[in-house]
Design a protein around this nucleic acid. Sequence first.
DNA 1: TTGAAAGCGCTAACAT
DNA 2: ATGTTAGCGCTTTCAA
Lengths: 335, 335
Amino acid sequence: MSVTIKDIAKRAGVSITTVSRALNGYPDIHPRTRERVLRIADELNFRPNAVARSLVMKKSKTIGLIISELTCSPSSHHFIFDIIRGVHDQAALMGYDVILSATSPNQQQEISYMELCTRRQLDGVLLMGVRTDDRYLQEVLDASVPCVLIDVPLISKTCGHVMVDNVCGARMAVQHLVDIGHRRIGMINGHRQAYVSFDRLKGYRQALKENGLTFDPDQVFDGNFEEDAGVEGVNRLLSRFPDMTALFCASDMIAVGALRALQQWGKRVPEDVAVVGYDDIDLARYIHPPLTTIHQPRYQMGKKAAELLVRMLSGGKGEAVVLEPQLIARESTIR
Amino acid sequence: MSVTIKDIAKRAGVSITTVSRALNGYPDIHPRTRERVLRIADELNFRPNAVARSLVMKKSKTIGLIISELTCSPSSHHFIFDIIRGVHDQAALMGYDVILSATSPNQQQEISYMELCTRRQLDGVLLMGVRTDDRYLQEVLDASVPCVLIDVPLISKTCGHVMVDNVCGARMAVQHLVDIGHRRIGMINGHRQAYVSFDRLKGYRQALKENGLTFDPDQVFDGNFEEDAGVEGVNRLLSRFPDMTALFCASDMIAVGALRALQQWGKRVPEDVAVVGYDDIDLARYIHPPLTTIHQPRYQMGKKAAELLVRMLSGGKGEAVVLEPQLIARESTIR
DNA sequence: TTGAAAGCGCTAACAT
DNA sequence: ATGTTAGCGCTTTCAA
């Protein structure tokens, strides 16, 4: 049996109320009493029971980190882990615990969003990896529990989000290609159910336009964020546009696949075709040739998301936090 | 305000006791009553309050996943993320939620092991990444909360562990090198505060012995699990043993560093020096040359750990779960 | 088969 | 400055 405030009260010869107040630093308590209570609590090695407190306070000091099924794709961990760390560190800093959850692939196991929240009395939720067509999204908007979305640009009274500016990132990538002389630039995009795909395409178009290049939808291959899409994308794009000299990929894994396919086409990178990826996962540095890519501040995304959520928990409104991407030039575009 | 069993009781015209029993599937309840209660609960969209239940049951159906500071090293995410997934999936399957925690670098923030457990009423704890000299370890052994250690071979009444057989893994690696003709085999090990380092060295020695090769401590470089150690290890080892033809590295990141250093020495891999890594992180497949390595079933480790912990929670004793590593031969040893 | 009552450990009116 | 009392939502004796 563990020590409760009752034990302390008995030992200190005061009521449990006094103990509670002393422990929680209320002002209306005699310094000597407080001191004695604190000392005894320490002697008894007292640990407050967060569960009991949650029950009466109706606040659990816990946030849920929900990772959508989508994000459990083979390559996603490069991306997710840093975000998890950022979320955890910032949450801990602010006195919150993080419960991990995932929208599971097998339907039967699936727990509804609200169910999770109410069951565990979550104060708020962080949601990442949801697709535009995810049914969770509607639940989130309907729910009263504050929520911060990662990479999904929705905003409402109870909803905010954190993103990296994808339009900007894509523009930087394409502008970089233009700057080093490319005019025939293809794109391999992620799947259409990701918000980021939409913005990256937009950035690609903008950059072309800004440089007086015409946008041709056929020069964009819609795949997914995995390696395979890179392979298929190159095959399609190159057979249709043999004179393509540059490729913007919506993820580093796509770029990895592209690199492989380009090699099979006998194209040298960057001499024949320059390649830019997106994400700056560890692999980008180590692959051959090292990949020029758009860096996303993943740890910061997690931190900012947790920060925003806690702000919302204390009455703040949902807002949009947009972080800046960064171009990392490596040898896949310049030698 | 959310729906409670009281609301259901009122609406159904029964006592809250009856509602509780009906909801929890007790047998001593009239089928018709149960049915009505269930229907009303559903109509009202009732969600049991896990916090209240935890308070009275003294079981939170929550386990803590504590990741030691150590494990937050730059390269560790390759390894950890899969374990987290395994833990989460298996825990969810068995009705447990997972709270994420970390032993934080800044001392002041540091929460004691027991504090975390009692505060959140954790039913059990999973601990990974602790060093042999970590003070958490003693707390764990002293504590009454069941605990499963990952990659730390301790066992007690309340403690079990999950590991991959590191002696075996190292032997496989070295045996592989011997099999393809190497006799002068160096090793770059991780730091000494990791249990796995000890076992991998043991496996290295065993394999040498089994093949009639003599063990020379100078042929082992003790570094850490990061890339830098690989670079430094190669430099040290090669300047002392210019005729070394093979290298066993205690992590893939070490091997990556080794590959880089070897190149600077003008050594071709695998022609001049063969390299074997450990872990089989994603990078191993993509680096040039693709790395021969020892695969660790990371997702399984997480799953098994959660499984063991839950078994212990229902009265099981601490036990040792040992998984099998697997040799993945790639081009860093054979062309 | 059902209900009344106690209580898990804590906080928070409302006295005093 | 301190104590009394009433809950938070649930489970669980014990009686009926």
